[in-house]
Design a protein around this nucleic acid. Structure first.
Lengths: 327, 327
DNA sequence: CTGAAAGCGCTAACAG
DNA sequence: CTGTTAGCGCTTTCAG
């Protein structure tokens, strides 16, 4: 492992000069530069990021905190983050909390100990108090999930409006008994989507029936399946269901099929997110598209701006109703 | 940002002593330790990993190279890697190549420049020549994909045998026209799974029909769908299909459904991997389970062993045929 | 345009 | 048990 010292010695220059040719931008005599570059090649020299990072007190790493990598929603966001990060000379440190507070503490430690230059937090279950404290001293942005009161910048969508659009669609095609498969309402977007659901019902004079609202513990196929199992036992069975995630909708679809019922004739179904596999179910799932990749990409750009000390503005992206076969 | 210097000064000890209380294991007088720990709390001191890493010439980061994070197969492996990495004080640096050689070069650079202590390579399309060169100087392990000739340690399954089991199952339930949805045969597992497919056919005296073997470009739902579209146009339509990935099988299933055909009656279908989604299709997919999480976990453990300079042995894990509704 | 020297924050001999 | 010191590999003044 050649070091900058060895390159300097062999090229007959000082380490400062080698550093200069490494870091472009500074003026170096063409001949000197050529000589140094030649030696760099000969020695197969690669500058050590450890040295550089200590000196510059930066790590060029972005912490990405998600609940679970198994959820494809985050997968597509991470994809977007990655693209922007890399094109700006950063890399991603992926962190799953799995709703484990200890892990969360570990990750928050990583920004304090300089392992990461900033964090993109996408875990709705994170300890908000600690997050806010952290955000006062370090660059942090939120993505998808966010907190209204805080001054942590975020990129997200208008969940209330998106849910309203989804439910209105269901109503317009004739449904009145519309179930909602929601997740834990401690999560902001769950509350917002419920508000959108209620607004649509109210607007069309449909009474709210608490029996039709199911809250899942988590966001997994099984949770969706369980929700539908429950909903099918309600005396006046719903004719349509709105799930706040395609993952839940797909689980629900499975349960409907298992009961010998047909989508959309017996029950219409609408999901959320437009995950790639929502188009592979049979029937294909109608859903509310979220621009996940773009969201991730913008969140990364926003974070990098913050790291550079620039001001940033919150971003609310557009959603889109994608009509397919399940409604 | 307090440094070790400030802690030392305020506690009235030397930096060496502070370092000692930080790094346990060394003997420090109980009183001194208490005093130092008190100051550490007061100052909210967090040791800088940048300094520590430079000094120890390590980064405590593991490079994980995958083709695409969108493929749920890798997702579950990464989950396993993460668990083991974290419990050993490492973190993962996630890298998608997207079959982009430039990115690949960037990632390989990261081990050379000390940003990572080792790499778990899962990209079958990686430049093997470069990979082998790298493996001579740095700790590298392969996971799922591997290379027979090389001396890069790996953890994988017996793909030939797994494919043989899958196809034999199809034959035993009465099928003779069995299609194979394979991926690019430049990839080792694709060749191995084809060998297993052929072995099963031969064993039961079924002639090989090249028309029934489709090669996809990539591993995406669309590729599976396209494969089945093609297969349905063969004059003597197959009555069963073996796909080398659940993702491909799910795409194929979609196409079968689109054509008004029924699985398993018109066409039986078997996938590979046992992705969580494979149980949510209708009908649920019969598949060959791979222990993805364990694979990732073992690969991480293996890599950490290598980093510590220990010898490691290749690992071949068991697969399992999971009978569900699609056959 | 180039070199000498300081120092980022930490750990690990080596003495005492 | 504790302090002194050197140095990990790099960038960046400051002189020249």
């Amino acid at each position: 492992m050649a070091t900058i010292q060895e390159v300097a010695k062999k090229a007959g220059v000082s380490v400062a000069t080698v550093s200069r040719v490494l870091n472009k931008h500074t003026v170096v005599n063409a001949k000197t530069r050529a000589k140094v570059e030649k030696v760099i090649k000969e020695l197969n020299y690669e500058p050590s990021m450890l040295g550089r990072n200590l000196r510059n007190s930066e790590s060029k790493l972005l912490l990405v905190v998600i609940p679970s990598i198994a959820n494809p929603f985050y997968t597509e966001i991470v994809d977007g983050i990655q693209e922007t990060a890399i094109s700006n000379g950063y890399h991603i440190l992926l962190c799953e909390t799995n709703s484990n507070p200890e892990r969360e503490a570990t990750y928050f430690g990583m920004i304090k100990n300089r392992m990461a230059d900033g964090v993109i937090c996408m875990d709705p279950a994170v300890n908000k108090q600690k997050l806010f404290e952290l955000a006062e001293k370090y660059p942090i942005v939120q993505c998808s999930d966010y907190d209204k009161g805080s001054n942590i910048p975020y990129v997200t969508i208008d969940s209330e409006l998106a849910a309203y659009h989804a439910v209105r669609h269901l109503i317009k095609i004739g449904h009145k008994r519309i179930a909602m498969i929601n997740t834990d309402e401690r999560i902001l977007y769950a509350r917002e989507r419920r508000a959108g659901y209620e607004r649509a019902l109210k607007e069309f004079g449909i009474p709210l029936d608490e029996e039709l609202i199911f809250h899942t513990m988590d966001i997994d196929f099984n949770d969706g399946q369980q929700a539908m199992r429950s909903l099918l036992e309600v005396k006046d069975v719903p004719t349509a269901a709105f799930a706040v995630s395609d993952v839940l909708a797909i689980g629900a679809l499975k349960e409907i099929n298992n009961n010998g019922l047909k989508v959309p004739n017996d029950i219409a179904l609408i999901g959320f997110d437009k995950l790639s596999f929502s188009n592979m179910t049979y029937p294909a799932l109608t859903t509310v598209a979220q621009p996940m990749f773009k969201m991730g990409s913008l969140a990364a750009a926003m974070l990098i701006q913050k790291i550079q000390g620039k001001k940033v503005e919150n971003i609310v992206l557009e959603h889109e109703l994608v009509l397919r076969e399940s409604t």
